[in-house]
Design a protein around this nucleic acid. Structure first.
Length: 554
RNA sequence: GCGCCUGUAGCUCAGAUGGAUAGAGCAACGGACUUCUAAUCCGUAGGUCACAGGUUCGAAUCCUGUCAGGCGCGCCA
């Protein structure tokens, strides 16, 4: 609809200029918006005001010229007003809405899909938690955001790949191995001293116990280094399997689990460093190798090879991001916890050094989650190993509630996740509010079938009966859906879908309480069935972008 | 000290490209089930958009500064 009005206005401007009503053929971008106040029309444009300085005319005069030259060939517009400082307000004929309503059923599960991606290969990397301990709520938020962004992009025509980067090399993995090996020794009766910098959680003991079952006391006879290595590999694999399992029960399936160690094994890390050396963008200082990130916007240069000869995490991360582009992705999205934000300039710098555009790389920062129970903070300490895992949360509140709640805030904001609230079936917990719409409509449809009403395609004459304020406002809400999806895709902000769904749900519940769907008038009944099944379709489509189910009954 | 995020109703938060009278939900108060699911709806009340300047026809939105809270500033990941 907006595009249509844009077209009409452009046409009017051109005509007005040709007929000498306005002097300049230069027109600013035409913006159509839905006024906040109903009495300001169905749509409005500020084009007359933005043109004022170019045309050197008063906004109202320009507006008059535009209105005069609008050629409404499709008979959509009831009337046009010029209001306030120069807004042009459009009031549509009630019948113009039915064309938009029909589109919902026409496009079905694809309704709302705007092809902005045009097949562009894009990768979304998210979660990427170190395999040194179970996933917690914070990872859950990253998972919900990443997966939903991937859903939305894919829906909008991007060729999307979901990837999980496994940090299976380096010091943390070694620490994991040491932690497990110590517990292993402890289980076999040796007296140990368990250092603070080792992983304290109970899961370490469980893993050690499994190794005892598997290997009995064999590892004790091996050199420590070898035993630690075995424990590290074994534990990391086990933890990774657990994460896969947890993520699957969160309905998240990755296309690729990418190993950091693999970058070392294939020599990619060393070859990247070698190429930097040849290009003189890497230099030696204080016995370490530094990469020049400062000339590309970082606040200082960064070490890639330490004094002790070991590469840093940054080194493999450079190789990793180059590898992404080598694999053909035109754009690369990383979903990170906000505590890593300081890392963005150096990775961006590395990407620019590699000859890529900085626009090809985008980080979605997700702020912290605080876990609460009935308003009181739940103690979370990785150090003591006492924390509520993502698995616990899913088990307690359910996948749908968890995913929905993670997406009820913009990622820029911290989020309080209250376990008691998430379980409650009230308005405080909007998942059910939205899902209830779907279930309610399914129930009406079931009822209609019991009454012998067949869901046949509905005539235009019947649809024209949808002319009450409630009917029109529901249809308007649905017309807004594709715009919402598109904007959500462009901004990579899934919470916009969440808020939209809550708004649509409110409009439907209001409708339900004021208008009966199943009436004595067969024509009206079929029209309203058509209307509400459209709402059901949009709710289902939106929920699927969030990764939340649409139940047929509740 | 520097960087990033946040500051909007009592509480939790929406407010893209600057637009008309700043919106929801919760909590409070008053109503609506002989009728398609009351996990619902309707109504009332609630605001110096942290503060101070600036930009312009017009600012919650853009710029500068200040204040408050969070996060980060390793040859850790």
């Amino acid at each position: 609809m907006k595009q249509l009005l844009e077209h009409l206005i452009l046409q009017a401007l051109t005509l007005a200029h040709e007929n000498g009503a306005i002097p300049s053929p230069a027109f600013p971008e035409i913006v159509i918006e839905v006024p906040k106040i109903l009495s300001h029309g169905d749509y409005s444009s500020n084009i007359a005001m933005t043109s004022a300085s170019i045309q050197k005319m008063s906004p109202r005069k320009i507006a008059e010229a535009i209105v005069k030259y609008i050629r409404d060939t499709d008979r959509l517009i009831d009337r046009m007003d010029i209001a306030g400082p120069g807004f042009i307000n459009f009031y549509l004929l009630p019948g113009s809405w039915i064309g938009f309503l029909k589109k919902v059923h026409e496009h079905g599960t694809r309704y709302g899909a705007v092809n902005v991606g045009k097949g562009k290969k894009i990768q979304v990397e998210f979660v990427s938690s170190n395999p040194t301990g179970p996933l917690h709520v914070g990872h859950g938020r990253g998972a919900a955001v990443g997966d939903s962004v991937a859903n939305i992009l894919s829906f909008c025509g991007y060729d999307v790949q979901r990837e999980y980067y496994i940090n299976d090399s380096g010091r943390q993995i070694n620490t994991l191995g040491r932690s497990v090996f110590l517990r292993y020794q402890e289980l076999l009766g040796e007296s140990i001293r368990f250092p603070d910098d080792c992983y304290q959680g109970g899961y370490i003991k469980e893993i050690a116990a499994r190794i005892v079952d598997l290997k009995s006391n064999e590892l004790l006879d091996q050199p420590d280094e070898k035993a630690v290595m075995f424990c590290a590999r074994y534990a990391a694999n086990l933890i990774l399997e657990g994460m896969k399992h947890d993520l699957e029960s969160f309905d998240i399936i990755f296309d690729c689990w990418f190993s950091e160690q693999g970058l070392y094994d294939s020599g990619k890390v060393t070859s990247v460093i070698e190429s930097f050396r040849k290009r003189n963008i890497i230099y030696e200082k204080d016995g370490a190798l530094w990469f020049d990130t400062m000339s590309n916007g970082d606040e200082k240069d960064r070490v890639v090879v330490r004094q002790n000869g070991q590469t840093t995490y940054f080194a493999s991360d450079i190789a990793y991001h180059y590898d992404k582009f080598d694999r053909g992705f035109e754009q690369v999205i990383d979903v990170w916890g906000a505590d890593h934000h300081g890392y963005i300039p150096r990775v961006t710098a590395a990407i620019v050094s590699g000859g890529y555009q900085k626009e090809q790389f985008r980080v979605i920062l997700v702020q912290l989650v605080s876990l609460l129970r009935a308003g009181a903070p739940v103690a979370m300490s990785t150090r003591s190993g006492e924390f509520v895992t993502l698995r616990d949360v899913i088990q307690e509140v359910g996948k749908d509630a968890a995913r929905f709640i993670f997406l009820t805030r913009s990622s820029d904001n911290t989020l309080d996740f209250d376990l008691e609230l998430a379980k409650q079936k009230t308005n405080d917990n909007p998942v059910y509010y939205v899902q209830y719409v779907h279930a309610r409509i399914c129930s009406i449809v079931r009822k209609s079938k019991e009454l012998g009403i067949k869901e046949v395609s509905c005539s235009d004459a019947a649809l024209r009966l949808l002319n009450t304020a409630e009917d029109i406002s529901l249809i308007k809400m649905m017309v807004k859906y594709p715009e919402t999806v598109q904007f959500s895709a462009e901004m990579m902000e899934p919470h916009r879908i969440t808020f939209y769904l809550m708004e649509l749900a409110a409009a439907f519940h209001a409708y339900y309480n004021r208008r009966r769907v199943l009436t004595d008038d067969p024509m009206l009944t079929s029209a309203r069935l058509h209307l509400i099944t459209s709402v059901r379709q949009v709710i289902a489509n939106g929920l699927s972008l969030l990764g939340v189910s649409a139940p047929e009954s509740m």
